[in-house]
Design a protein around this nucleic acid. Structure first.
Lengths: 201, 201
DNA sequence: CCTACCGATCGGTAGG
DNA sequence: CCTACCGATCGGTAGG
């Protein structure tokens, strides 16, 4: 496997990040201690500080490798589709197929917003800029009969469709009303598409 | 004023809840200490435990009085409009007028999801059930040409519109791309309405 | 409702 | 990379 070429330091560093990711996703940042991280990563507390100089630096390292946007944007870039409609449908299904089975994939974003007031957003955004520009370029060339909507609004609405799907899904799953909402996402996509396309077919 | 009829115990209890709300909204639950709450509420640490038996009980009390849904649902119930379109437009503007100026109003919901895995959702939901049923009754009687979309999906999509608006707004405000998105919400509402209404006027 | 305290745990470091 | 430690702070309580 590729992983074998990793140096020992690199392997430990990754073990720390992986352990911290699992714990923080589950408990939040403030509720996760450096000792818990060390235990799960298989080293002593002091050992972490050979790789990261503080708890927040561990968190930033997690953001840089595991922020949901780093999964979402490349996935979107790989989606096929010549028209807006085809792209949106394929994109929705691709994202759900890839991310739908672990609904905690948005947690890292929410944790950063809640516990750090989104102060790391610029850092993540800057790292993603090339991917985003590539995607924007691609999308602006798509065919289809679209209503006049600013590109940025369009992007927000599309992304927001997933936010709202996942959050409302999470809320519903807690109540007895969870019912059989098997194809709720299809409805979301339908509403979105009807919302942005002009009437003519 | 009405508030004068409050007993001293009631007043202290509210001071604790108010202090805790401000701190937790700002820092998160785990990062907020009982000592901070006591200081801000103007009493000693031990005093809190005359009103609440644990830190989590303070949090639950906050949820029961200040969960965003307790602001949203009554507001929706007060919105006028005979057709779906009129209702949705009025509702969107009412919510934004009321909540748009303090974008942290969703934080409590997000904190509960992130730090408690949404385990208090059933409790909040149960307390809201009468209001929700009243609203559902009202909405099912609205006129307008709507496409065939399950009621629950409709509710999710409408609520989700605000989630996505606020979260993407928050993300954008961190970057230099914040631009002049003055009427982004109008676009969101437009997309939603076009999405759920059938073609005929 | 406050004072003074409990044991536990926190993030971080020195020194090897 | 570990051991052993630092001062600070945590949630909670007894006793008045």
């Amino acid at each position: 496997m590729i992983e074998e070429t990793l140096s020992k330091g690199e392997r430990t560093s990754r073990a720390i990040i992986d352990a911290a990711y699992d714990l923080i996703i589950d408990q939040g940042y403030a509720a996760t201690s450096m000792r818990q991280i060390a235990d799960r990563a298989g080293l002593a507390l002091g050992g972490i500080y050979n790789h990261f100089s503080s708890k927040e630096e561990v968190f930033v390292a997690i953001l840089e490798k595991r922020h949901p946007f780093f999964q979402i944007v490349p996935l979107l870039n790989s989606v096929e589709g010549e028209t807006i409609e085809a792209f949106a449908r394929n994109a929705a299904h691709t994202l759900i197929a890839e991310l739908g089975h672990h609904p905690e994939f948005l947690n890292l974003l929410l944790i950063e917003i809640v516990e750090f007031k989104g102060e790391h957003v610029p850092l993540v955004f800057e790292k993603m800029l090339p991917m985003i520009l590539q995607l924007a370029q691609r999308l602006s060339n798509l065919g289809g009969n679209m209503r006049e909507i600013p590109q940025l609004v369009l992007a927000r609405a599309f992304l927001g469709m997933f936010f709202s799907y996942f959050i409302t899904e999470l809320l519903l799953n807690q109540t007895k009303f969870m019912a059989m909402q098997t194809n709720a996402l299809d409805h979301f996509v339908d509403i979105f598409l009807h919302g942005i396309l002009s009437a003519e077919e």
